[in-house]
Design a protein around this nucleic acid. Structure first.
Lengths: 193, 193
DNA sequence: CCAGTTACATACCGATCGGTATAATATACT
DNA sequence: AGTATATTATACCGATCGGTATGTAACTGG
């Protein structure tokens, strides 16, 4: 005995995610959101709560998407070294292609909101830990296959790769010289040798 | 034949820098600024121009301060390895002490504004290049003193240190476990071996 | 001590912010 | 078909946004 929604919540949330990802929390207005989501303001509040709650839902959606994206990229290549090389080179290449360079939504949130909002501090930290676990899985796969030495500390190396990934992604926001970016990516990969 | 300023421009700009550093561009209002700077709104516009111009002046001031801070820290320790170790450990230690964790103002700007504003893209890129040059100087000093091998590629290593510094600084915004942060910092230093 | 110039404080501007009250509309169950 | 219920669209809310006009106070050169 109800009137059904005329919009797809999933699509609307996706649109909100893209907007927040590109512009950040403060710079995105409710008018921006309703326009891009294709819904009216009261519908947004009924479906997602206030701006912060919508933002949190968007970040959770991004983190899920991003984690599975990273896992897929690393698992789809048989060689662990080659998978990681392709992954880090991809960060550089995609940053040059994209305008504006959105980078990683989760990192953007770490910078804009995590220092002032405990909820986002936790949410972003958990995602980084999760990414570290994905890297660790991959490294352990390389150890098992003999591609990496048995003496490699998988956990420590994974954490280092997370730091390098963050550094590379954020560095790309300033669009450094291609040589700088390529060299930085190459040096990260060289950590595996 | 004029009335002199009642406020110190240097101090006022410093106050603005601290506010922008802590809260970012969008989240800092003119009311916040005039309150902390201790001046009235028309005085702010007369002395510094509009909000964006004031922000740019604040960033330039920060970059100067930050570059000389980094240079001093790296030069004040005779051992290059020890200087770099202390520097990266310091990033971790200071992040835990500071609440909220402001991180690096220039990195905050890279994330919030550089992708949408060419002026800040250039300004932040130049600072990263400058930091890379400082690291390179330090590494070359280590090579000359024999502390580092002659085969070391100073420029490439310096660029890698910049990426690691960025990654570590941004990671700290999510306040990761102490073990994660310490290990990440230690692995960066291990690059020198 | 007056004239000219600049900075000060207050008060205000239109625009936009996030959020909501209201009322018309569309559906499902009885 | 009628009624209860949820969604829609419009219009509106007070607050705050960045920015400025206005008039008064303070100083200096003549």
């Amino acid at each position: 005995m109800v009137r059904p929604r005329e919009f797809n919540e999933e699509q609307a949330l996706h649109a909100a995610m893209e907007l927040f990802w590109e512009k950040g929390y403060e710079a995105t207005s409710l008018s921006d959101l309703t326009a891009k989501m294709g819904i009216q303001r009261p519908s947004l509040y009924a479906a997602f709560g206030d701006k912060k709650e919508l933002f949190e839902a968007a970040l959770r959606k991004y983190n899920q998407f991003h984690a599975s994206y990273v896992r897929t990229r690393l698992q789809s290549v048989p060689s662990v070294k080659e998978a990681l090389r392709s992954f880090f080179m991809g960060i550089v290449a995609e940053a040059y292609e994209e305008v504006p360079n959105r980078g990683c939504f989760c990192l953007n949130v770490m910078v804009e909101l995590a220092p002032h909002d405990a909820k986002f501090e936790v949410l972003t930290r958990e995602h980084q830990m999760y990414l570290a676990a994905i890297f660790q899985e991959t490294i352990e796969r390389g150890i098992r296959s003999g591609e990496l030495g048995k003496h490699v500390n998988a956990k420590a190396l994974a954490q280092t790769l997370v730091v390098s990934m963050i550094g590379l992604t954020v560095l790309m926001k300033s669009r450094p010289d291609r040589t700088f970016a390529d060299n930085a990516a190459a040096t990260v990969v060289a950590l595996l040798e």
